[in-house]
Amino acid sequence: MVAKVGRTPVTRADVALWLQTHEGAGAVEGALDAVVERTLLVEKAREDEFLKDPEVAARVEAARREVIANAYLDRVARETSTEESLSARYEARREGLARREVHVAHIVVRLAMGADRRARAEAQAKINAAHARIVSGADFAAVARELSEDTVTGALGGDLGLVREGQVDARFFGAVVALKPGEVSEPFETDFGLHVARALEAPRTVLPTFQEVRGQMAAEARHEAEEMLMRRLREDIPVRRYPERLSGVVGTKKAEGEQ
């Protein structure tokens, strides 16, 4: 106990939780002061029998329910997301985790979603002109520096570096992974605009490291554990529903001034 407010003790755990859940809470002493202030309000609420108000009691129970449920799920997640279990999941999933990647350069002409016919025609003419210059012998990098509307890669001669399957637009990856080294694509469209691309290397298949996909493995393990837990709970704990008693329940707050 680090303080006592009326009948209520304030513990080190209370202060630690305040620091964890309040960004920028500051020093420990300040957190203690904040917890004491909130506890003073709770003491006065008890004195005024405020917790007997049905709406307040429902809010208290809802908060309690959420805290307990989430804490229990966190414990389940920890039990199913040990380094050993995640490593075993990774080994079992190795083949399915493999992804193709390719080193590619591109030229892009921006085209807004829903662009009108004139804007589309102008963008198409620009990307067609870039493509024509390249197939006629112009240096791809020089054309990219001159015409690409992706200023970052344009300054690098269009070089996007390695692009990996699943991490870029699917239409873009599908177009570039089919190219042979040095081959230039026909103009194609994605949500980002119109492109001409050039493969700088042959595609290769890579396996992400455990650390690269650890978060994904942990999320999958937690999701599976939660689903399994809920199935078991529905089987083990009887539940009765009374939907006919929901008449009059309001799901959203009324706007200010609304009758």
Rank of each mutant, 00 (worst) to 15 (best):
V5T: 00
V5M: 07
R7P: 04
T8P: 03
P9W: 03
A16I: 01
L17Y: 02
T21H: 08
A25V: 11
G26W: 03
V28Y: 14
L32I: 09
R38M: 05
R38T: 00
T39A: 11
L40A: 15
R46M: 04
R46A: 01
D48L: 01
D48R: 00
D48V: 03
V56F: 00
A57S: 13
A58L: 05
V60E: 06
E61T: 01
E61C: 05
A63V: 07
A63Q: 06
V67S: 11
V67D: 09
A69V: 07
A71F: 07
L73G: 01
R78W: 03
R78F: 01
E79V: 14
E83W: 08
E84L: 10
S85H: 02
Y90I: 05
A92G: 14
R94E: 15
R94S: 13
E95C: 05
L97Y: 05
L97P: 10
H103G: 15
V104H: 05
V104A: 11
I107W: 08
R110D: 08
A112S: 12
A112R: 04
M113K: 12
G114H: 04
A121W: 00
A121T: 05
E122M: 10
Q124L: 12
Q124G: 13
A132G: 04
A132M: 12
A132P: 10
R133L: 10
I134L: 07
I134N: 06
